[in-house]
Design a protein around this nucleic acid. Sequence first.
DNA 1: GTGTGCTGTCATATT
DNA 2: CGAATATGACAGCAC
Length: 800
Amino acid sequence: MLYLKKYFTEGLIQFTILLSLIGVRVDVDTYLSNQLPPLREIILGPSSAYTQTQFHNLRNTLDGYGIHPKSVDLDHFFTTRRLLNQVRQLDRLSVPSTELNTWLVHRETETVVSTSSQSSPSITLDNGASLEDINNIDSTPAMRGGAAAPESSYNLNAADSSLGAVAPEGNQEQSSADGNDDLTKEDIDLIDILWRQDIDLGAGREVFNYSNRQKESEEKPSLLESKDRNEERESLRNGINLQGAPPVDGETGESIPEQLAGLSSQTSLSLQECLRLLEATFPFGEEAEFPAADVTEEISVSNEEAPSTSQSLPLGSQLPGDEPQLDLEQQWQDIMAIMELQAMEVNTTDPQTDFSSASAPNGTTDANTVANFGLATRSTPINEDVSLHQASIPSCSQDFPQIFNSQLDSTSIPPPRASMPRLSSSNSSNINSTFGATNLTGIFLPPPINGSSSNITSTPTLPDPFATLLEESMLDEISLLDLAMEEGFSQAQASQLEDELDSDSGLSLDSSHSPASPSSSETSCSSAASSSSTSATFSEEGAVGYSTDSEVATAETEEGAVGGYQSEYSKLCRMSYQDLSQFHPQLDSISHNHTYNLPLSSAFSEHPELPLTAGKKTIRDKHSSKLQPPQDLLDKHSSRDERRARTMKIPFSNEKIINLPVDEFNELLAKHHLNEAQLALIRDIRRRGKNKMAAQNCRKRKLDAIITLEQGVQDLRRDKARLLKEKMEFLRSIRQMKHKMQSLYQEVFSQLRDEEGRPYPPSQYSLQYSADGSVLIMPRSVTAAEQNRKPEKKQKDKKK
DNA sequence: GTGTGCTGTCATATT
DNA sequence: CGAATATGACAGCAC
């Protein structure tokens, strides 16, 4: 067992890390909510270090306070807090960012467990109060609800707590025998961690809680707990009395006919309360506060539901998750099984793992989602619905199974009512502003009746399978691209990513694949020289220098300036390359002499008749040039045309020949009396010089174009990755919102009562929101409900 | 010796 | 239409 524990501890950590890496937010932050719950961190997620520290601190603190980790109070507290935060976030799309939260799962001493275990039983499972209520165990549920989240500005939290307080009713009759001795605190921690993951994935811890409660109720009778529950019942009873509702038989949990007395009034109250909940979910204003009376009402309402549960089958029979699980869920189940928690055959499905819910194209795997969205549609149970519902609203979590069980077992399903009870909303205007004339079921419930095959196959409104495909197929790419593009995104990384990911792009950006790659060097070159790449600047400086010659120097006064210019140009070119090599070391291997000046062979004696051929054949004679007098050294930097011009006794520099405007050039030619050979040479020099600059500019433009295209491709890739990421995040947010909406819908629906005080079976009724702001209960077709019931039963049997 | 990259040059197209 | 410019192609050179 110890080995298994260790194994699973490590496995859980790894599993959590994996979840975090794939973008699933593994949120441990709720552990911290009691200590320091900045909403920002709750939404955005804490840093791993912070989380870890706070996690341990909180756990230690909890131990110090003697709260047993098994205590449902913790579950309720966390659930309440989380629900509150979720509700707060419902009004906006939260775009979660990929986070990696890691923490240590440490084994805690048995003493702590024992110490806390004494108090934990006293804390009833249904206690929705916060941790501060540990010392107020005896307080009534309503009171607890009020104190559930002191830091929360919303009383909705209190409402949730109160709702949670109702939950225990479902297993009150079983609470006499509850036990979970084989669960060590370590196990609880592990379960908590897993549950955090599931919570983030949309699943409710109530799944576990439910089973845990069941097990506790079955195996571990606790006097304290029973006492607390008695007190709670008493308080509930008081609340009911306050509301004028008939008291619930807290002892047996039997359905109480007396409840029927105050049904109509309670129905309206419940509806209003539900509407308030909805409204609070979408804060149109800050009017989502629930007075204490509301809390009491909630309690009373939920308490009324308890008796129906009492008639139902034992909770254990309802719990088993029958749906085929995804891998994640399977892991969870395996873990649970190995931890000898098979007793809780709860549906541990993660209602909304980011990929599980959507990745279930077939209906069976998506049972959770169906449960989320199809509660009202399915006639069958239940368990899935329960788990999901509990994920958000603990109080209703138990109510629903009870309701369903009552329906199933008693087979006293109320016939579909031709009359649609009209539910008026006090805040209908606000709701209407948000929802407009929409069918609530249409929003977060699958089409109610078309689920002939099974409710399980029914899918949420949004095409989750598509989302699944998208997410699964793009997750890797997105993550990699994010890594690459958001952090540095070096050329090598980009290329690697491109090779790995974007084979379909059809573009191959081979930049910097090899040091000698032309693209890289030219890219860097052009980028570095891009500033000077303007034709005007570069053409001026790019003019071929007019090297000084000893002979010409004496005769030509201009040559000094020309030589200076030429050396400057050479320097510019060299500097450009040196600068480039600074930024691109690979350029060091390419040390071309790009000075556009060719070494002068002083020994070369040009024949004026054959300047070109002679120049081409014997342009360079380095050895001889080195042996030449100093004035000949200047010719090393002269081009062929310069030498030719010198040889031809051209009286002006090549710079003038090349760069002068046509008019001035013609004037210059006219000023000097030149022979045909000289004129031809001058025109060739001008032509070649201009063409040379043109070629340089052309090549630069080419490089610039290539660079621009490269950059464009990179930008597009980055945009693509960003858009994909955003899309995934939006999809995730939408799914979460749907889940929350479905939970609220379930909660609202669970509190509805007909004239006789019986809950409306979700399989036969659904809530619809009319244009005038009123909420209607629409009956479903009985046939569809029956059809939906069969497949679930089959699955249930399978899992058993 | 060969391959590669840079540069200059030519021919041609384009402005 | 001519000049200027752009560009593809080629050759030479350096590495």
